[in-house]
Design a protein around this nucleic acid. Structure first.
Lengths: 183, 183
DNA sequence: CGATGCATGTAACGCGTTACATGATTAC
DNA sequence: GTAATCATGTAACGCGTTACATGCATCG
């Protein structure tokens, strides 16, 4: 049920074809929030047209068809965004891995935790660079798509980094070793 | 592919029946990491037995069958946990909502952000209470299942809270209003 | 003896992934 | 002219959800 809202959201930025939308999912949106390939996108676009949430906007070369969001579509998206998620079914593999850490012996768990510390550090550097400088403002007086989400990502990775270091300390406590020093 | 590792992880704590496992998913594991009902669990247990990753351990009253992890199962779980996730397909609805925030007008976006700030504050209070006091140690000298994950959750919610307040400030900037004061 | 909880399964359906398949245009 | 890119679809399969279905044991 989420793909349709991703599509409505992208189309509410500007009209686009299925091909354009597939490319949009290959950027930050797709890597951090929701991914979909053209094979899922085309059938869903057809359904959205059926339901009157988007409409055919233009026909271009090579069979290119662009779609635009309708008023009904805008309303539908707005309702969804304003309705707080109902604690729905969770399927979060990275978090599952953290839960299962206690199934590893301490040496292996340390390996995993150091990996997390390292990779989150890299992500922080990347995102921090992307967000350096002033708050950007689009000509229409809105925040650019993804700017707020990037800020969220940055804080999440900082939290993950903090956590990994704390967890290494916790592990040291129960194995009664002196704190490991890793450069 | 993740459910099987959740099951292997739970069974590596202690042998359990399908029914026990279904209950385990109703706790923190199911609310934060991965959820599954008995309908998914029973077929997957059958498959794991077929593949030799778990084995039949005991037969009890009312048709109760408990399973235990085999050496092959332990190895499989360990390999999975030690293999860093390959940036696989992302499907994270809460984050998708953040990306789409720019599709809302500023007044609506503020509503959503205040909701997030409030709910994360509640979660922080809950988790903070659960984690108050010293690091618990099980008799076998291991950290209890879920302890590290709880620490992760706490930091995530703190990050979300921080972010929501920051995002409200960013919104104020582009709409050129004085910072909102909300109690 | 009826309600609740323990305990296990099957069937239909939807969403997502991987693979298969096709054709038009542009760049070299 | 041929390779890359634009552009759109279909089919098979797997995982997850919702709903359907059954039976035993304990508590009051």
């Amino acid at each position: 049920m989420a793909l349709r809202y991703a599509l409505l959201g992208l189309l509410s930025e500007r009209p686009a074809s299925g091909y354009d939308l597939a490319k949009a999912f290959e950027g930050e949106l797709g890597s951090y929030a929701w991914h979909a390939g053209h094979n899922r996108i085309y059938p869903e676009l057809a359904r959205l047209v059926d339901e009157g949430l988007i409409k055919h906007a233009d026909e271009g070369a090579r069979g290119r068809r662009t779609y635009a969001v309708t008023e009904a579509g805008r309303t539908e998206l707005r309702n969804w965004l304003l309705t707080p998620r109902t604690g729905g079914a969770v399927r979060n593999e990275p978090v599952l891995r953290l839960f299962l850490l206690s199934a590893l012996d301490p040496e292996d768990a340390r390996k995993v935790l150091r990996d997390i510390a390292d990779s989150s550090e890299r992500q922080i550097a990347e995102l921090g660079e992307a967000m350096a400088g002033d708050t950007p403002v689009s000509p229409d007086g809105r925040l650019p798509f993804g700017w707020l989400a990037a800020g969220y990502g940055l804080r999440q990775y900082e939290a993950a980094h903090d956590w990994a270091l704390w967890a290494l300390g916790e592990l040291d406590k129960v194995t009664r070793r002196p704190p490991t020093s890793h450069p």
